[in-house]
Amino acid sequence: MNKTVSYIFAIMTVIAFALAVIFLQKDAFTLSSFTDYKTLIQLGFINTILVSIYSLLGSLVFGFIFYLLSISKINYLEALDDVFTEIIYGTPLLVLIVVMAFVIGPAFNTYNRNLMGIFAIIIYMTPYMKNVYKSAFSSISEEQYMAMDLFGFTPFQRYRYIIIPQVIRILMPPMMNNFSLIIKGSALLNVLAYTELYYAIRVATSKTFAFVEGYILMWVLYLIITIPLSQFTKYVERKWSL
């Protein structure tokens, strides 16, 4: 079977399974009750995308800072990175969001819970982003540095023409995977009553009582964001691989 046809069949299989589930569950299935909440759901959808982009950018910055700590020659800074990473690896995102919004934020007189929630996602993703940088920079071999040295490239030229163009290519696919984690993780911001997609639909279903439809709708909306993203990642991987 050719590849495209295989994919069409695979997608049809999944749709058939979804339809079967919808028919087999006892309640009637209709999305029409959500039309009244269209604006709310749209807002949630957009907020999910926005929050995810902020978190991505934030974690790229913090990840880079912690990457610098991790390669630091100062033992204390390296240790700091290690301790931080170990703690974050063992912390559920939900816990981090709650602690950040209700404990750490107020301790520093910050009562903007949504902001602290986003900050929690950033902090949570920081070690993962750090690893992305780490693998990207380490993939430039020592011999390449020797060659740059031999030819006499200035430090600026090395970064501008040789190091950064390579690092960006290597960094893109794992960064996009992390972005997808962020998008899904942002659903946990609902505990702060922040109107992202999950929260928006939960609010709508509490009025419509169409819980099954709500979750299916939510699921489809998340896929609408994540699948194009992962397809784009694959494209970049193919196009840019070194």
Partner: peptide, 17 residues
């Protein structure tokens, strides 16, 4: 001196991008 030298590495060592 280095600028007057050509060096060929074990593994071609071209810039891959």
């Amino acid at each position: 001196y280095k600028k007057s030298v050509g060096f060929v590495f074990q593994n071609h060592n071209l810039f891959p991008h």
